[in-house]
Design a protein around this nucleic acid. Sequence first.
DNA 1: AAGTTTGCCTGAACGGCGTTAAGTTCGTGG
DNA 2: CCACGAACTTAACGCCGTTCAGGCAAACTT
Lengths: 237, 237
Amino acid sequence: MGITERREREREALRQRIVEAARDLLSEQGLGALSMRSIAERIEYSPATIYLYFRDKDELVGQVVRAGFERLRDYTTEELSRLPETADAADQYAATGRAYARFALDNCGYFRVMFELPGSARIDCPAVTDGAADPDAFERVVARLEEARRAGLLTVPDVRRAAVIGWGLVHGLTSLYLSGHLHEEMESNEEFMALIEEAMHSMYLGWGVGQEAAVRPAGRRSAVHRTGSVRAETGRK
Amino acid sequence: MGITERREREREALRQRIVEAARDLLSEQGLGALSMRSIAERIEYSPATIYLYFRDKDELVGQVVRAGFERLRDYTTEELSRLPETADAADQYAATGRAYARFALDNCGYFRVMFELPGSARIDCPAVTDGAADPDAFERVVARLEEARRAGLLTVPDVRRAAVIGWGLVHGLTSLYLSGHLHEEMESNEEFMALIEEAMHSMYLGWGVGQEAAVRPAGRRSAVHRTGSVRAETGRK
DNA sequence: AAGTTTGCCTGAACGGCGTTAAGTTCGTGG
DNA sequence: CCACGAACTTAACGCCGTTCAGGCAAACTT
């Protein structure tokens, strides 16, 4: 009998509808308007119904976050597709950063949900992202960098760490810009995008793009290399 | 008569007590526990009383943010004081970044309030920080960089932009680490601090620290330099 | 066909939130 | 002594996330 299968399908469909309602609400009205009641009203169900499909708000928002990462991936592939044939791995990496910043500007609601502490009201500080933080996308960036390294385009000791650093660079500038802390320095989105471009360019130079063989003074910067020691402990709960 | 003056003093004292209660509550219990009611309970007043001293929660939190920036400044000066006499401007800049990261690890509650959208429930995306975003500290960093540039330690076109980029770099890594997105890559605070160190070092290389005269291939990276054009518009409300 | 079970859904409530209007207390100035 | 005004509280409003007893129709059983 296909009845239980139909039910299962309908159940999944409604579950999907809920996520979509939350996603749209977030895009259209911002994070502040994302309440269980408003979501319920949008899908024309009672608020209590949502709890038959999601354990709590966090789980629902988690699904929205997942959708956000997929959207980010779309931005990335689209930005990459704009590149000319001659683009090298470095150009591809720059395009990825550009896509990241553009995504954030277009979907700041998503951006907040994805990167401010997920639980929103979570107490312990370093929040756990239930492991779904787009492993694919990051891995692809790492692979791109590894490719560049092999091609002699950059001389960096650990591509993985380099990728993290690049992520931090773009993410930090974006986050600061969106939260208004760069308001005095940056006045328009175009100006901001130019900043991103310049920042990534600087980073490239640091990684040895275009240089023969980097100096890499590893042991230098002798003094004060133990980092904070005691106090650094307390940060983690 | 000194009566009105005494009253004014008392008024200011209570106002200060409220801010301190909020600050402590934030440090001890996290952002989620920072409610008007809990603050009121801590100072043993009715919640309504707070509204005689602050227009709304945002204004109160704004004061806490101000306190947070002062604390950040303390971290910075303390970190700078650890440097040996021989430290150059580059070392000082690195110390500033280190202080920033250490501050965030020790006071993640502060960090959230300071850099996630201040209003917390604000609708329009790029929040305005009422202009109180520690102008001093940032200016001092800029001055430090300018000094380094004059000493020939780095060859960067615009120190101000360089400072912003450096800020973004450290802020982004910190933000990602605190929100758990670097959980798979970084496992301890020490590891994270080392990452910060490495990141700043890479950035230095990019800025030409220790190089004679940087190449600065300004016009290069020919293709796709108009940044996002159309879509970038919509991000701002 | 009738009765029973099952699964989906809701109304109403709980406690907590930010915020406000009305009311109380009380030291002060006329 | 009285009236004013400042300081403070009580009680409520309308949000929020969440839970639970109940209703109701579709599906199964006999």
